[in-house]
Amino acid sequence: MKEFDSLDPIETALLDFVRNEIYDPSLGIDAGTYLIEAGLDSFSLLKILVFVEKKFNLRIPEAEINEERMCSVQNIVRLIHELQQCQ
């Protein structure tokens, strides 16, 4: 079950970014797609981190940049919500 519905503006913005600017739009990445298997490399990760910084004014700490927390758009959105609550 998804924790945030698709109207969550963070998920919408992040999914749009990942779908169109990180991957080929024809791949049809969705919020649950396992990003590593879809081909996430260092530069893609860099782009996601910079996007989150610029768009949501939020820096993801190094301790949270790991496979479990960042394996899908859904997990990254969950992480963003948690970090926003700590701010």
Binding site: S42, L46, P61, E62, A63, E64, I65, N66
Partner: peptide
């Protein structure tokens, strides 16, 4: 440095 930062953040 980015790779080392990620390693340093490992728990």
């Amino acid at each position: 440095p980015f790779h080392y930062a990620l390693l340093a953040g490992d728990s």
